[in-house]
């Protein structure tokens, strides 16, 4: 038993983790433990919690950005919002949050990390994904439903979709103009790392369908290892039929399938 003196949040977390994984495996059954990181200024954290917990029946732990220990989690979500008020650059300060060290470790070990909108921007600043975000070409903050094409349906985040499927999914950002150098872009293209592209409703990837000036109509990319995905559109805002659109739900279902080892045969070239 732990003495009162040695009691700390770290002890509590490791105890909870040990109990849930070793002593009560059947109680949790196939339930996955999803960590949603909460930065000061995150505002889509509870939406992500709602989808995983209430819609998909999983266990969700909200992780305050000061945490440095991520025990017993199966996947991590960096949600949308305006972490640290977007001061300096979007995601620039959040990447130095104490929790990001643990997130990097988790990713390095192959854990699934999903970054949505501001979460994507943080992943870029943290170097977990290549490239950077620029201000939207139009300078406007754009908040509307758009058509987005699933270019790679063989990832842990998109395996429940059909390849080439067109999703109706909202974006809400002012800095979603993705940029990277030509060498990195070519490598990502060759490696099928561009997972989502802005397109017309009938699936054509055209300059007119590009809302923000993003290079190569990029809406979402994955790392070469295939375990870290960043996307500007908000799948958590369209994951329930009762709200009129559940096109985004399969992102979360794909993750659960991958965690349960039931996803499609995943193949990432060069991974």
């Amino acid at each position: 038993m732990l003495s009162a003196e040695s009691w700390s949040r770290e002890n509590a977390l490791s105890l909870v983790s040990a109990l849930s994984t070793q002593h009560f495996p059947s109680a949790l059954g196939a339930m996955m433990k999803i960590g949603v990181v909460v930065f000061p200024g995150s505002n889509c954290d509870h939406d992500c919690q709602h989808i995983f917990k209430d819609v998909l029946g999983q266990y969700v732990e909200m992780i305050w950005h000061k945490e440095t220990l991520l025990a017993g989690l199966d996947a991590i979500v960096l949600p949308g919002g305006f972490s640290y008020g977007d001061y300096l650059r979007t995601g620039a300060i959040a990447r130095f949050s104490p929790v990001m060290g643990a997130v990097k470790e988790f990713a390095k070990k192959g854990g699934l990390v999903l970054g949505i909108c501001n979460g994507f921007q943080i992943l870029l600043e943290a170097g977990l994904l290549p490239g950077a975000m620029l201000r939207n070409k139009s300078l406007h903050f754009i908040c509307k439903d758009l058509s987005v094409k699933v270019e790679n349906a063989a990832t842990s985040f998109t395996s429940a979709y059909e390849s080439g499927q067109v999703l109706k999914i909202p974006i809400a950002h002012a800095d979603g103009n993705y940029y990277t150098d030509p060498v990195t872009l070519a490598a990502m293209q060759a490696n099928a790392q561009i997972v989502l592209r802005y397109c017309t409703p009938d699936g054509k990837v055209t300059p007119e369908a590009n809302p923000n000036g993003s290079l190569d109509n990029i809406a979402g990319i994955i790392n070469a290892e295939g375990n870290v995905l960043g996307m500007m559109p908000h799948p958590e805002r369209c994951a329930e039929a009762v709200l009129g659109n559940d096109d985004g739900k399969l992102v979360f279902l794909s993750m659960l399938e991958a965690l349960k080892g039931k996803g499609k045969q995943l193949k990432m070239v060069g991974a």
Binding site: F96, Y179, T180, D181
Partner: peptide, 8 residues
């Protein structure tokens, strides 16, 4: 490290 994102 922080003040500039040297990619852009």
């Amino acid at each position: 490290k922080l003040l500039a994102n040297t990619i852009v």
